[in-house]
Structures are given as structure tokens and as C-alpha cells.
Design a protein around this nucleic acid. Structure first.
Lengths: 151, 151
DNA sequence: TACCAACGTTGGCGCTACCAACATATATGT
DNA sequence: ACATATATGTTGGTAGCGCCAACGTTGGTA
């Protein structure tokens, strides 16, 4: 489906456009992540850990916008690959502390480059100022809307 | 997750922003569709039929950006609800012709109103010209990227 | 006629977003 | 202090959506 084939009323619906654009974005990123066996959520988690250091799974869930239950599987995957370490928190024995390993840091760097390239591909038809504008508009929309997961 | 809780590197990634915005958009639409038992694909199909009249499932698949196999189930659902009619095409016996019923037309009108309200909610923080700008930017991005389903 | 292309259909896979429930551990209020 | 509420990790399940492979039927083409 090219966009010009889609029904005209849909082509003007912001919610439809943004959903279609998200599909394109995800395909673009995944096409580049596939060859190195990466996933989008992996990048989110590694990024969060790199930015703020070790943290509990629940805190990471909130910051990454991922459900607690999904974070379990995500940490399992990355821990199996040695990119991340999970150990019980001695001061609060409900928690696990998840931390980045050296391998995880290397992995993150590789993902960063791949994902940066995907951004360029995605925004190819836009000028630099248009790209800024798009980012600003989307940010405004997101800032206005409540968090996804109050649970 | 509020956007300001998300890792900073993510907050600047266009692919991440557009995916998050799509989530918000889908939640907004679904929250309003839920009470009347509607789905997003239903709206796409009814819209396509209303715009261009009866058509084959394959053609509708292409225009709605839905896989042929998924269109089968979609038409099943809507036909069961009497919103759509499926009959064999006498002139090309490979095809089914799907057409809108009177009930389908009424349903479409109801969906239109609900979805229009969702757009307003989604874009609440944007001025009219900003909304236009966002639509234009997303359209440009979509026009530049190849169709999703060559199959 | 032989071949290829399109169609509808079935069945399946994988990702993502969710929710419910539970046991355990901590925090809070009285 | 004790009862109650809340947070955490975990399991398991649901649902929508996008996508692919294969098959039998039908139509168009070489």
C-alpha cells in the first residue's frame, strides 16, 4: 500500500498517519537491527542503564515504558547474553539491581550507530529544520498526554 | 512513563518519538472506540468501501494496508455484524465483492464522529497550524517510503 | 495447451501492549 | 506492635497487528 492508494479520509487522519509512520520507523530500525540480532527494547534498556546507572527492574520498566512483566523477559534475554547483570538488592530484598556489563556497553555503542543510521533513512525526505520541527511537535504531543502505564 | 522520565537519548530519537506518539494515538482512539465495540481496522475498511464502492477483498487489502489473509477475518467480522456484504463476483469467480450495507453506512457515520473527537484529544496541545504542519511532515515521510506489503 | 498470475482462505509466527494474580518484602498508620 | 497497604519480581494469559507460506481455484498469456 502506497499512501496515495489509501482512502483519502484516512490520509488526513493524524492518528492514522502517526501509526503508519511508526510502522515505517519500526521497519527501518528493525531492518538494520536484524543483521546484528538486536531488538528495539534492548536498546531502550541499555540506554537507560547507561544514562543513570544500575537500577531496579520496576524503575527501569517505568523509564523505558515497558510493563514490569515484560521487563523480566527482557532482562533475562540480555543477562543470558552477558550484556547485563541481575543481582538481588541487599538493602531492599524485594528488588533486583540490573547493571550494565562491559559487553553491554560495547553492544550499546554498536546499536547507537545502527540506530542513528536508521533515523537518517527514516527522515531522508525532510530537511534538518523540518526534522527538528517534527521532533518538537511529537514531543509536545507526548508531553501533553498522561503516562501509558499507571499500573 | 511520562516522557520526561524516559532516557534522554531516547527522547530525541525520531523513531522512538513517532512510535510513542502512535501508542498514544491508538490508545486515544481505542478508548473512544471501546464503548461502542469498534476497532480501527473496521473503520479503515468501511471508509474504503464508502469512498470507492464495492470492491474485491484483495483490492481492499491493498488500499487499507492490510494483508489479504487478515482481510478475510475482517470481512467475516463485519459481515457477521451485517455492516458489509460478501458475495461472489459473477464475472471473475476468483473474487468476492464486498459492499457496504445501510447498517454499515450508519456505523461508519458513528465511527467518524468518535474518531474525529479522538483526533482533537490527541492534538489538543497543538494549534491548528501546528496540526497541519504535523500532518504535512508525516505525509512527506510516508510518501517517501515504499509500500509495506509487496506480497 | 501449458504456463503463470491473481484471488480467497487457512494456519501459523513474532512483536508489542496489556492485565490479573501471587508470594515476598517493605512501608505506613494507628 | 501490629494490621494494613503498597512495592517488587514473576508467571501466565489475552489481544491486536503485521507478516509469511502454502493450497486450491480461476483467469489471463505465451
Amino acid at each position: 500500500m502506497d499512501i496515495e492508494d489509501a482512502p483519502a479520509p484516512l490520509r488526513r487522519l493524524p492518528s492514522w498517519l502517526v501509526s503508519q509512520a511508526a510502522l515505517v520507523a519500526q521497519r527501518t530500525v528493525n531492518n538494520r537491527l536484524g543483521p546484528i540480532g538486536g531488538q528495539r527494547r534492548e536498546f531502550s534498556l541499555l540506554t537507560a542503564l547507561d544514562e543513570s546507572g544500575p537500577d531496579s527492574q520496576a524503575a527501569l520498566s517505568r523509564r523505558c515504558g515497558v510493563d514490569r512483566s515484560d521487563m523480566v523477559a527482557l532482562v533475562n534475554d540480555l543477562a543470558r547474553g552477558g550484556l547485563v547483570e541481575r543481582r538481588p538488592d541487599e538493602t531492599d530484598r524485594r528488588r533486583n539491581v540490573v547493571s550494565l556489563t562491559a559487553a553491554g556497553r560495547n553492544r550499546l555503542q554498536a546499536l547507537r550507530e545502527v540506530i542513528a543510521a536508521a533515523q537518517d533513512e527514516l527522515l531522508a525526505p525532510l530537511s534538518p529544520s523540518e526534522r527538528d520541527r517534527l521532533v518538537a511537535l511529537l514531543t509536545t504531543v507526548l508531553e501533553h498526554h498522561p503516562p501509558a502505564m499507571p499500573a
